[in-house]
Amino acid sequence: MTALLEAEGLVRRYTMRRGLLGRQVELRAVDGVSLRLERGETLGLVGESGCGKSTTGRLVLGLEAPDEGTVRFDGAPVPPVGSAAWRAQRARMQMVFQDPLGALDRRLTIGTQIAEPFEIHGMAGAQDRVAGLLRDVGLREDFAARYPHELSGGQRQRAVLARALATDPALLVCDEPISALDVSVQAQVMNLLIDLQAERRLTMLFISHDLRAVRQVSHRVAVMYLGRIVEEGEPDAVLRDPAHPYAQALVSAIPHPGRTARRQVLQGDPPNPAARPPGCAFHPRCPMAVGLCRSVVPELKPRASDGRRVACHVAQGEAMGEAA
């Protein structure tokens, strides 16, 4: 069976002006990302701000058209943005954002908002289904009559999930769905995501900066740095033995009680996507960089030893014999 979603070589460029009269520069938010989402599987996409993980989510959903590359959904290319076929496909793929209050209309009741997808996609029996959806996400049926401001943050995110599930989508893209929630409520929403995923055989793209949360909900994890995936594998394998130096730094940065070993602190700031370093974009911050890293962009490919997909000359053993 083909994967539910296959993205191949996605590139998204933006042009921006530096300063008031400055010349235009090109910013590659996503720079050649390929990913496969198997049916019923959750892929965690992790990285820091500006690494292109949210843009990747929007490209995958077809909310934005890529400048290069293709997205195939259910074996067929995603139709052009705005076309009738594209609109019909919206029912099968949905998105959940970080800020549930921003994603809900403050003037409409929760019930009206959950029923809206049924109207848009011409489905019958909205009222009954709303009650069922509310139960599925752990809200009482009487919440249908409430307004967003009457709900707590966690309850709002549940309402957003209910609305996203209304059309029974095959694919759910969650962009930092728990970052705005309190710790105790984050756990509730992660539990809900795990349950919904298992019960409905949902395919999910879970975008987060939090490796702990990614491990909690994902079957696979992809680490992004400056518009590219630099490592991909099973969450536990990546957490226990990260291959890419950037993934190593991310794992080492997870706050850990009773830590005895000193944390590996990465120097410098994430680089500006408009001034991408040549070669491996990570090399200016990398403790292991060698000459090759400064000139040649490493390719994401399986490592010889265990098949872990990693884009690093050093981890791939291509930098042998070179002095660091």
Binding site: D182, S184, Q186, A187, M190, N191, Q216, P235, L239, H256
Partner: peptide, 25 residues
């Protein structure tokens, strides 16, 4: 205890339910 158990673990079986604190503040 609830705050600690709501923290996703870094080892053990993945994708297990967290012991979330019910309700909200």
């Amino acid at each position: 205890q609830g705050l600690l158990s709501a923290l996703p673990p870094l080892d053990g079986l993945p994708r297990q339910h967290l012991a979330a604190i019910p309700g909200s503040v």
